[in-house]
Design a binder for these strands. Structure first.
Lengths: 350, 350
DNA sequence: TTGTACGCGTTATCAC
DNA sequence: GTGATAACGCGTACAA
């Protein structure tokens, strides 16, 4: 004769292996109703001290952990936050993810990371996945979605987006002043006596790229240096494009004594490119980047750059989103970019 | 008079904003029972062609997307896979995450990334979070959990771990041959005529570090070069430690003509350290790393390294896990490490 | 092959 | 304050 109960065979086996402690079991153990346990867990209502103690004891005794899946179904909150990054292996955005995770975890929230690959279509899919997973809110790291699309999403659930100037109900934008950052970088070179300053731009599709070009031009203008399009090479925010750009720049035979690359990755590529042409940094050409990646401290020579902390940005995005989730009007201020001067730039002797 | 129904006010408002299409609505639209729709969705049973078409049409018309949260509760499967990485901003593991995501998403699975910070205690918390979130399986990228702990977890749900030799029911280990990789790197230097080869080791707590040291020693031994502990500097797998290690090495006044750093990040730090002492790579000292990070192609000079594709490793981990989930016995073979020779090593002229 | 009915673990509403 | 009770959206054993 078979001892086993005939029903629910597979599920029972699973449960037997890792005995799931449910809220109901806690209630029974504490001699109260499930509703009361739930209330204590969520602070939904005031519960008498005696029962609270009994419940806390039961929870501890049974090692109860609430099931987020069931909570999601019943309460509509999943305690998970969607995060749209662009590339999981980006050194810059990676720090942001770290900041996000670090803030979220202690609060019982889990981040759900998806990557948009700098492609609006992919990003749209990402948003769909996140919404189907019923995340409580979404953090979008820059990306290619239109402002309009973002606003539409924000009607359904709270959204925090970085790298944009934007405002709408249910939406907060953490804008870093790229124009100012780029101006700072360029001005630094000007202060060192450089007048012929090349610029390696980022992907022109990218708003940051546009802003940084503008900052470069602003600095030139206020120093009364004529903007020369021949000194601008188009890059793509990756090392390879920095290498390529230096080749392009050199091919024009335009003279320059310094390069401002729109991010550190391109600056590293540019450094290699210069070296390929027997040009030394900073002796022959000064070089400055943007982002201040942690690795830039160890470039050879260590790279001057514009610091903006992706880590803190991530943390701040979480703060803002949590405020929105709590129904508050978020207050925040993105730290200004700042110059980090290292050894890749030198004063131009006359 | 108030028109609104008196019940479920908040939830109703939410639903009004983003009208959730449920399986039941699809069933009604198609004129079948919910069970039939579910069967079609999951392929649980054979359904007549006519009804299947009707349901498919209804799904398309209504734009129905199954709710993973409800599926998780009802069926016990959440279609999410836990991934324990160590640092979200690691260039090496970042690629692995990319590989994992890329494989998982098209299959309707979502990765849930958590990072263990190379700390067993933190990692244990990560595992708990993942289990409480009811992930269907877990991928552990190396980490510090004991083999025993891992085996225990594997009793509850399928686990794939990288960077270990290990086998147990419910557990698959993707071991990369670090000993062989390190031997390859060292042998390369030996082939170029180097006999005094320094080694910058990784964090000795890390199994990879131990293996790579072993590979280094193996290569020396088979070339009948005496192993000299003074030529081994302890690092920590980050750039800073590579820089530091070169200082230590130089301080011993032991002569060496080449350095093998146990990963690329330390190699980059080492390159800077050498430069600080007016030593050029590769003219004065040859340098080789390990991991072949994508950025190593753009170091100055481009870094020779041992290639192991984290991206493919991630993809393979997913493949293996999915096989396990399907109840199959996983078959797999981790690609062997291979030497990538670039410009940071030169032949030693006699 | 298909439909009915129940359960998954929790939250929310209502009446006490 | 507290306890029933009804959802939440879906999977599945059972009967048909």
């Amino acid at each position: 004769m078979n001892i086993q109960s005939p029903k629910r065979s597979v599920k029972d086996m699973v449960k037997a292996m890792s005995p799931t402690v449910t809220l109901e079991m806690v209630a029974r153990e504490a001699g109260v109703s499930p509703a009361t346990v739930s209330r204590i867990l969520n602070g939904t209502a005031v519960v008498s001290a005696v029962r609270k103690e009994a419940v806390d004891a039961a929870i501890a005794k049974l090692g109860f952990v609430p099931n987020p899946v069931a909570r999601g179904l019943a309460g509509g909150r999943t305690f998970s936050i969607g995060v749209v990054t662009q590339a999981l292996d980006s050194p810059f955005y990676g720090s942001a993810l770290r900041g996000i995770e670090e803030k979220l975890l202690p609060l019982g929230y889990s981040p759900l990371f998806v990557s948009g690959q700098w492609d609006a279509a992919v990003e749209t899919k990402c948003m769909d996945v996140l919404r189907s997973r019923r995340v409580d809110g979404i953090i979008v790291l820059t990306g290619r979605l239109t402002d309009k699309a973002l606003k539409a999403y924000a009607k359904t659930l709270p959204i925090v987006v970085t790298g944009r100037k934007l405002s709408a109900p249910g939406l907060a934008a953490l804008y870093c002043d790229n124009v100012e950052g780029a101006r700072l970088a360029t001005q630094h070179l000007i202060d060192l006596g450089h007048r012929q300053i090349a610029f390696i731009s980022g992907d022109p599709q990218h708003p940051d790229a546009i802003d940084r070009l503008q900052g470069y031009r602003n600095a030139l203008e206020s120093a009364r240096i004529r903007f020369d399009p021949a000194l601008v090479a188009e890059g793509g925010f990756y090392e390879a494009s920095g290498l390529q750009a230096v080749g392009d720049l050199l091919a024009t035979r335009k003279r320059f004594t310094a390069i401002f690359a729109a991010n550190d990755q391109m600056a590293v590529g540019a450094a290699l490119g210069l070296s390929r042409h027997s040009l030394r940094v900073p002796e022959d050409v000064s070089l400055i980047g943007y982002d201040d990646l942690s690795s830039s401290l160890y470039s050879n020579p260590p790279l001057s750059s514009i610091h903006q902390s992706a880590f803190e940005l991530g943390q701040q995005a979480v703060d803002v989103l949590l405020q929105m989730l709590a129904g508050e009007k978020p207050v925040f201020e993105v730290p200004a970019p700042r110059l980090v001067s290292r050894e890749s730039c030198r004063r131009l002797s006359i």
